[in-house]
């Protein structure tokens, strides 16, 4: 049967309104739950940068994760110069966990906001820094835990959106991430060089040294992406450490 044009237009309009209404209704209802899920996921990733915490995270209930996070993490947001930012664009208080790293990645270095998550547990203080970059196929990101003096990596958690399963996607494996622990991000002269993942796998120790880690066979380009990401982002945090951590550490001892 052939319907008139006006019937078709009205049908399409009514259908659009019904489906659109349904979807926005669902988005409204589920919105808060989704926000909580995302928040929990972010906090898990941040805590996951510390190897011992990552182990403890497994099998932990959502509430336990949030409690643990609250207990050990304090966060601030800094700019490229290393000055702290207290208010967000809307004039509200700045929340480090809500800073969208991916959106910031698209801005110029000087315009970005850099969250810093300070981890304190058992007298040990490390700084967990978010990083973001490009892998072989799509975005990669991670959280690097570095020591107070900004020289040693204490742990790392890496994630990706579309790296090849079994090859580049292996950056999410605990075994690969463990290679970064206790490696140095500065060379002998104190210059920031970050950590380089080299080509090939099962390289002899002589080829590695303090600032290099063993690579992933078949995923050299993903490794190159990780290397670039680490160097670029760690460089952005240099000023923060100069201004707030190294000089201030003497002060904070009195607290």
């Amino acid at each position: 049967m052939q319907q008139s044009n006006s019937y078709i237009i009205i049908f399409a309009l009514v259908l659009t309104v019904i489906l659109g209404g349904l979807l926005s209704g669902v988005a409204q209802v589920l919105g808060p739950t989704q926000k909580k899920a995302i928040d929990l996921d972010t906090k898990k990733q941040i805590l996951g940068a510390i190897p011992s915490e990552k182990l403890a995270l497994e099998g932990m209930e959502a509430d336990a994760v949030l409690d643990r996070y609250k207990a050990v993490i304090t966060s601030v947001v800094t700019d490229y110069e290393g000055n702290l930012i207290d208010t967000n664009e809307k004039g509200g208080p700045m929340v480090a966990e809500e800073v969208n790293i991916e959106k910031n990645y698209k801005k110029a270095l000087e315009d970005r906001q850099y969250p810093v998550f300070k981890y304190t547990s058992g007298g040990e203080t490390t700084y967990i820094l978010p990083t973001f970059g490009a892998g072989l196929w799509d975005a990669i990101w991670g959280f690097v835990a570095v020591s107070e003096d900004f020289t040693t990596v204490k742990g790392i958690s890496l994630a990706h959106r579309g790296e090849t399963p079994g090859l580049g996607a292996r950056i999410t494996e605990t075994e690969v991430q463990a290679r970064y622990v206790n490696k140095s991000i500065v060379d002998a002269s104190g210059e920031l060089v970050a950590i380089t993942m080299i080509k090939g796998e099962k390289n002899p120790e002589s080829k590695l040294g303090p600032t290099k880690v063993d690579g992933m066979a078949g995923a050299t380009l993903t490794a190159v992406g990780v290397n670039k990401m680490l160097l670029a982002y760690l460089d952005c945090y240099k000023n923060y450490f100069e201004k707030n951590v190294k000089g201030a550490s003497a002060l904070s001892m009195n607290q």
Binding site: I8, L19, L22, V26, L30, Q34, A37
Partner: peptide, 28 residues
């Protein structure tokens, strides 16, 4: 469903349902 726009109607319905699934998964 008007025959002339049936594919679009089907697509709209499917897309809505898939978005529902995706939203529910995202939340839970």
């Amino acid at each position: 469903v008007p025959g002339r726009i049936r594919i679009i109607v089907q697509l709209a319905v499917v897309a809505t349902l898939v978005t529902l699934v995706s939203e529910v998964l995202k939340a839970y």
